[in-house]
């Protein structure tokens, strides 16, 4: 690997590391991170395919409240390096991604603990009215997150493709790699389950079953499902509005007709 490639890889890995804590532009999601890593390593197609595969697996990995998702950034970048530079199969990439995501999570917990120090330093700067100082504390935390992915990624890139690493990876028996690939087909259910649980579905589960049935018995594509979902949402909200109108009419002891759903401005829907 050329020095320029190593440098570019460092930059890409640093961006994904920052994105993993910011959770804004989504550079840390496998579909983006693997693509960028593939771009740097000269095999963008493999990067895109690996990214798509890992993205399905990581669909439900999210930061909600104080809970932290498994780390997609380190998992994506390092497994893309091993697949592209180390000539491993996509199946091996999936298998490696899981322990890497766990390792990345430990590293980010470590950094988020160290950053408590900067929190107290920021307090001191606030007492002095030093805004530059507080900004420094903020970006110092961000830089640590960048390094926590960039340093391991570059270290692995330097040894990937060497005989030692290749032999180690090649010594994994076929039943394991094939089995992992098979599991890769249905590992996505964990992500679906996380998303469904987080939406706290309850009585809304009926819409989940509707989507499932339509998908099983028709050829509607995902854009079609989006449209059907939007229409269902429209009727669901309409229904909620009617119920609220009835309740309010009941509360005021309302004279006249109880159902006045049509009086509600439709523009509120969007």
């Amino acid at each position: 690997m050329s020095e320029f490639q190593l440098f570019a890889l460092f930059v890409v890995a640093a961006i994904t590391g920052m994105a993993s804590v910011l959770d804004e532009a989504q550079f840390h999601r496998p579909i983006i991170a693997c693509t960028l890593t593939g771009l740097v390593l000269g095999d963008v197609t493999t990067g895109v395919i690996l990214g798509g595969t890992l993205e399905m697996m990581a669909l439900g990995w999210m930061n909600v409240g104080a809970a932290m998702a498994p780390d997609a950034a380190l998992a994506s970048v390092v497994s893309a390096i091993l697949v592209i530079v180390g000539h491993q199969s996509i199946g091996a990439g999936i298998a490696l991604a899981v322990p890497l995501a766990a390792a990345g999570q430990v590293l980010t917990i470590f950094v988020r603990t160290i950053t408590v120090f900067f929190q107290h330093l920021a307090d001191k700067y606030a007492d002095e009215g030093n805004m530059r100082g507080i900004e420094f504390c903020h970006f110092a935390g961000l830089m640590l997150q960048a390094l926590r992915v960039a340093l391991p990624a570059v270290a692995i890139a330097m040894v990937a493709g060497t005989d030692t690493v290749n032999n180690a990876l090649a010594s994994i028996p076929e039943v394991i790699t094939r089995g992992l690939q098979v599991a890769g087909g249905f590992i996505v259910v964990v992500g679906y389950a996380m998303v469904i649980n987080m939406m706290n579905a309850g009585k809304l589960m009926v819409y989940f079953f509707l989507g499932f049935l339509i998908a099983v018995f028709t050829d509607v594509n995902l854009i079609g499902f989006g449209a059907i979902g939007a229409i269902c949402a429209y009727f669901h909200i309409k229904d909620m509005q009617t119920n609220i109108a009835i309740e309010e009419a009941a509360k005021t002891g309302g004279g006249g007709s109880a159902v006045e759903g049509d009086d509600i401005d439709d523009s509120e829907l969007m």
Binding site: Y192, V195, I196, M199, A201, L204, M205, Y207, F208, F209, L210, G211, F212, L213, I214, A215, V220, L222, F225, G226, I228, G229, A230, C232, A233, H236
Partner: peptide, 10 residues
């Protein structure tokens, strides 16, 4: 949530 769940089902 309605839209999301429908797509998840699919």
């Amino acid at each position: 949530s309605v839209l999301g769940l429908l797509v998840m089902g699919a």
